[in-house]
Design a protein around this nucleic acid. Structure first.
Lengths: 218, 218
DNA sequence: GCACCTATCTGAACGATGTCAACATAATCT
DNA sequence: AGATTATGTTGACATCGTTCAGATAGGTGC
C-alpha cells in the first residue's frame, strides 16, 4: 500500500514520507518543546517520538539512549548559553562591568529556559564533568576567563585564574538555580524586577564587582 | 507474643509481622540507602518497598506520592545540612573564619552525600521554593545570616543582609555541585586535596573572605 | 531497466515503574 | 465481645525504556 499517512503532527511544511528526512533534528526540537511546555518530568522518549510523528522505536536509529537524546538537547543549550555570555561580554561598556554583565546574562538564560538549564546540568552532574563544548573556543567558560583577565586578573597565574573562574561560574550557577525561588519574590518586587535583583546578588559576590572601597574612616 | 515491640527493628532473622511497626521511618532509611549506594536513578518506590520488605503498595499508606517520600528523604538531608553548618560555625576561631568554615562544611556535606544533596535541591527546584525547614530556627540559612552579622554586616539593613545571604548560599551551592567535576582533579591534587581546593574557591568569592588587603603600593 | 546494500522506520513484545481499587489483618476503642 | 481505624497484600492498568524481526526507502553497481 502507498503511504496513506495523515501526518497528524506535521510540524512545518511537508507531509512526512516513510523516511522523515531529518529526524535527529526534529527529535531534539521536539524534546525542547516538551521540556519548556510541560517540564522535565513529561520528557519521555516516547513523547518525543510522538511529537515528531514517529514510532517509539524510531529514535533508536539516531540516539543510543534516552540519555543520548538528552545530551543532544543539552548541547544546544550550552551553545546558546555560550552565545549569550559572549554577547553580554561584548556589550559591556568596560572591563569591570563585563563580569557582572556576563553573570546577569547567564542567570537570565537559566531563568528563560529553566527546564533546559536543568537538563544541561543534570547531564553534567551525572557524569561529574563539564560538557565537552564548555571548554571550546567560544564557550562561556572561556569568556569568563578572559573577562577576568580584562578586569585585572593576572593572566600568568594559571591557578589563581582558574580558581577565580570556577568561583564566578559557581556563583552564577547558584544564583541561576535559586533566583526563581518564591521566597525572593517580595525582594525582587521591592528592587524593581528580577534582573535588578540578580545584579544585586551577583554584586555581593566579590568576583563580579570587587568592592575595593576603603572602609569608612573611624 | 502477639506483641513484638522490642523486635521492631529486627528485619533479617525473624519473620516480619504483618504490621511493620515503623514503616515510614524504614522507608526513608531505605530510600537513603538506595540513593547513596545505587544513585538517584535507582531510587524507585518499588525498590524502596522491596528494601523495606513490604509490598509495592504499602508506602501509599504513609506517603501520598513518590514525590512525598522523596520530600521526607530530602527533609532529613536539610536537617543534617543545618546541623553541619551550625557545627562548622561554632567551631570557627573567629567571626571572619566562620563564613569560610560554613561554606566548606556545606560543600563537604554535598560531596559526602551527593545523591541526597541532589534530591534535596531537585525538590526545591521543582516547587521553586526553599524547603520550609530552611528558614527555621536552627537552619543553615539562619546560621549564614547570623555569621554575616558577626563578620560585620549591618544587622539593621535587612535588604543588604538578605542579598549577602543569598549570594553566599548561591555560591556555596554552585561550588557544591561543581566541585566534583573531573576537570578540577589535577588542580585539587596540586592543592593538596579537595578541601583545600574548596576553601580556595570559596575564598575567591568575596562574601566568604573579604580580601581587604591594600593593593600593593606602587 | 535490474539486483543488492544500507539506513531508516514500524509493530509487537518484555520487564519495570507509579498508582489505584479491592481485600486481609492487626491494633485500638467502646 | 464487636466496630472502627490503621496498616498490610494482591492484582490490575497505563506508561515507560528498550529490543528485535520485518517493512520501506534511497542509493549503489550492473
Amino acid at each position: 500500500m502507498t503511504h496513506a499517512h495523515e501526518a497528524a503532527h506535521a510540524q512545518e511544511t511537508t507531509v512526512r514520507p516513510y523516511h522523515h528526512g531529518d529526524l535527529s533534528r526534529a527529535l531534539v526540537q521536539a524534546g525542547r518543546r516538551i521540556l519548556e511546555n510541560e517540564g522535565p518530568a513529561a520528557l519521555s522518549l516516547r513523547a518525543v517520538a510522538r511529537e515528531a510523528g514517529v514510532s517509539p522505536a524510531a529514535p533508536y536509529h539516531h540516539f543510543k539512549d534516552k540519555c543520548d537524546l538528552l545530551d543532544a538537547v543539552a548541547k544546544e543549550g550550552w551553545m546558546e548559553l555560550g552565545a549569550a555570555v559572549a554577547k553580554a561580554r561584548a556589550q559591556a561598556p568596560d572591563a569591570q562591568g563585563a563580569m557582572t554583565n556576563i553573570g546577569v546574562a547567564y542567570v537570565c538564560f537559566a531563568r528563560d529556559n529553566p527546564a533546559l538549564y536543568r537538563t544541561m546540568y543534570d547531564g553534567a552532574c551525572d557524569r561529574a564533568a563539564m560538557p565537552d563544548h564548555a571548554k571550546e573556543a567560544d564557550s562561556g567558560w572561556r569568556h569568563v576567563r578572559e573577562a577576568l583577565i580584562d578586569a585585572g586578573a593576572d593572566p600568568d597565574d594559571g591557578r589563581e585564574l582558574e580558581l577565580a573562574t570556577i568561583g564566578a561560574w559557581c556563583a552564577a550557577h547558584g544564583v541561576a538555580e535559586m533566583a526563581g525561588f518564591k521566597e525572593f519574590d517580595s525582594l525582587k518586587a521591592a528592587m524593581g524586577g528580577e534582573e535588578a535583583f540578580v545584579r544585586a546578588v551577583l554584586e555581593h559576590v566579590g568576583i563580579y564587582a570587587r568592592r575595593h572601597k576603603v572602609p569608612p574612616p573611624g
